[in-house]
Nucleic acid binder design. Structure first.
Lengths: 205, 205
DNA sequence: TTCGTCATGTAATGGGTTACATGATTAC
DNA sequence: GTAATCATGTAACCCATTACATGACGAA
């Protein structure tokens, strides 16, 4: 998961670890807490050893100022960039549709977060796979609820009901997204019909 | 988490490992996948070593038949029961309101699943603590969305929006539960107003 | 000069999972 | 007799976390 996310971000632009964590927190924040440095830095090491990323990228071209921040002798930032093998690996992970892609919130979430880097066919495959999983889960809970409701205490029941509702909502959400993919347009912003937030420009793909 | 859940279930009735897993899956299934035996059995060992549970309970009195299933010489089932120290520990965990109780889905979920074994004051404390956390998270996402929306691609944005919505719904849910606790009644079953599922009897407490 | 935040890292630990191994019991 | 499911367990691994340690840089 971390590997995937790091490759995905470095695919967009070179970055150092600290910045990477901030971006990660932003990109994955919807379904996951911030990752720790104790996890991030060792992973960067591992990716570097594996040849998927390398030191010495030019950090994202920020405007005109920004005169190379004179980090001569000191420990300073280590800017990483993705390598050719890294890009290959990232594409491989993007397209992979194993159970890990649908099972966990995290697995699906990371893939979704990088949907902008994939083609429509892959997006549809993943969305449909996820929908199937959530539907299975939903059916399991429904069946369980109708069979065992009388043996459960009120709180357990309420928890179950809440979980079931979450499944139902996720299925609806996925269905909208699937329909939208099929229609060939950008994912719509469903919550702010009269929002002051700017509409997205077409996806690069 | 596992420790808590095991103690909670054995508090209700003695059980062997396999059965424990099934019950666990049922009770925690709303927010968590089934736990593995590779995790369950070692934990049972640990709890036994710690003196919180002990071998040799009478499994839940099931009807009249059930002539002690002659497990004489073989490996057979190992039925565990909770000890006095175990009960003490369970009460301690039930009442504990550290960050782990609110932060993770799992931490809150386990506590909630055993709400029937707690007093109203503890329930309220936990529900309000959880609400505060989710509100914080919600605010963080709102702020982020309004600040950074134009720099995000459509999919990341949609993921963010979906996450925010989930937070908002959870807060509403918690609010209902809190109001209900304060009113002094059982948690209502909100989804099946004309359900054929039986209504719950008053909570034991 | 001190505080916040930027920035990188290590060691110990945690809390699980998967895969494997074994065997009894029940239903067909 | 054979397949499903009940039942218990171990070993290897995974993917992270927390706590700790270090230090530079900018702003008050």
């Amino acid at each position: 998961m971390l590997e995937f996310a790091i490759l995905g971000l470095l695919h967009e632009s070179p970055m150092h670890g600290y910045e990477l964590r901030k971006q990660l927190t932003a990109k994955l924040g919807a379904f996951r807490a911030a990752i720790s440095y104790g996890s991030l830095y060792p992973t960067l090491r591992r990716l570097q050893s594996a040849g998927l990323i390398a030191e010495g990228g030019e950090p994202a071209t920020r405007a005109t100022n920004e005169e190379v921040p004179l980090l001569s002798g000191r420990r300073g930032r280590v800017v990483y960039k993705i390598t050719a093998e890294g890009k290959e690996r990232f594409q491989e992970l993007l397209g992979s549709a194993g159970p890990e892609t649908y099972d966990s919130e995290a697995g699906f979430g990371v893939h979704f977060a990088f949907f902008a880097s994939t083609d429509r066919a892959t997006r549809l495959r993943i969305l449909e796979g996820r929908r199937r999983r959530v539907e299975e889960r939903r059916e399991g809970m429904r069946e369980f609820l109708s069979r065992a409701a009388e043996r459960l205490d009120a709180y357990t029941l309420e928890l179950q009901r809440h979980g079931l509702e979450a499944c139902e909502r996720e299925v609806r959400w996925l269905e909208e997204l699937i329909a939208h993919e099929r229609s060939g347009k950008d994912p719509k912003i469903t919550s702010q019909p009269s929002s002051d937030l700017p509409r997205r420009s077409p996806l690069k793909e």
